[in-house]
Nucleic acid binder design. Structure first.
Lengths: 135, 135
DNA sequence: CCGTATCCCTCGGGATACTG
DNA sequence: CAGTATCCCGAGGGATACGG
C-alpha cells in the first residue's frame, strides 16, 4: 500500500473515525494538557477549563480505551489518580501540534474569510461566476 | 508569541474550533476529495460516498465560508458548479495528510488497545495500580 | 478526591420531497 | 444538475446530585 493511497475513498474512510475522535469537543484539549507530563483528575479539569466532570471522565475513558492515555490509581485515602500519555499518545502529539501550528498561522485568514462571506453574503469572497462554460 | 505557547490553555482554545471544523463528520473527506483537483457537486457526492445531498451542501458552505473552498458557477442550462480548494485549502491538506498517515500507521495499535480494553474491561491494558503512593 | 447516575435539552445529520 | 425546505430522530453534552 503506497503513500498515495491516502486519497482513495476506502483509505479516507478508515482514517476519518480517528480524525473525529481527535476532533471531538475535548479530546485534543486533554491530550495537549497532558503533553507536559502526568496530571491528576482535578488538575486536568482546571487545566482544560470549561469541561464538566462528566465529560472529562468520558473523554479520558475514550482516550484510555484507544491506548492514548494511561490511568494509574493510587489506593490512598482519599484516592489519587494520575493520567499520562502512553508512547502512542505522545506520538499523536506531533501531527496534532502540526495542525495546531497551522491553525494558529491561518486563523486570521479564516476569520477574515468568514467576515467577507457573512457581510457580503455568498457571492463575494472566493465565489465566482464564469460567463464562459469552458475550463 | 513563541512556538511553545501552543500548550497554553488560551492558545488551545483558539485552535480547538479549527480542529473541530476539520473534525466534523464530512469536512476532511470533502477536502481530501478535492485534493486532486476541482470537482462538480455530484462528482464530489459520489467520491465522498455516503454523504447526503443536504450535508454535502452544508459542508461545502462551511468550507467556503472559512475560505478553504472556492465555488464557481457556470450559468449554463442545466447549471454546472465546480468546487476547488483555495490556496489556503491546499495548505491545510499538508497537516491533515500528516494526521492521516499517522492514523493509518497506528490504526492497528488503536484497534488492539480497544479490544484489550473491551475484553478485559478497564483494569487491564494501560491501567495500573500503585501500591506505593510515591511517584 | 474521583468518579457514576440521572435528567434534559440542543444540535448534528439522515430521509424525503420539491424548485430553478 | 444543483440545490432548498421540512421533518424527525438519536447522539452529544451540560447541570446537578449522589457514592466510595
Amino acid at each position: 500500500m503506497s503513500d498515495s493511497d491516502i486519497h482513495v475513498p476506502a483509505e479516507c474512510r478508515r482514517i476519518a473515525p480517528v480524525l473525529q475522535r481527535i476532533g471531538d469537543k475535548w479530546s485534543i484539549l486533554v491530550v495537549m494538557a497532558l503533553g507536559d507530563g502526568s496530571l491528576r483528575f482535578n488538575e486536568l479539569k482546571r487545566r482544560v477549563g470549561g469541561i464538566s466532570q462528566r465529560m472529562l471522565t468520558l473523554t479520558l475513558r475514550g482516550l484510555e480505551r484507544d491506548g492514548f492515555v494511561s490511568r494509574t490509581l493510587f489506593p490512598t485515602v482519599p484516592p489519587a489518580v494520575s493520567y499520562e500519555l502512553t508512547p502512542m499518545g505522545r506520538s499523536l502529539l506531533e501531527p496534532v501540534r502540526a495542525l495546531g501550528l497551522w491553525a494558529r498561522e491561518h486563523l486570521p485568514a479564516i476569520e477574515a474569510a468568514r467576515q467577507r462571506f457573512d457581510a457580503h453574503g455568498p457571492g463575494t469572497g472566493w465565489e465566482r461566476t464564469r460567463r464562459d462554460a469552458a475550463e
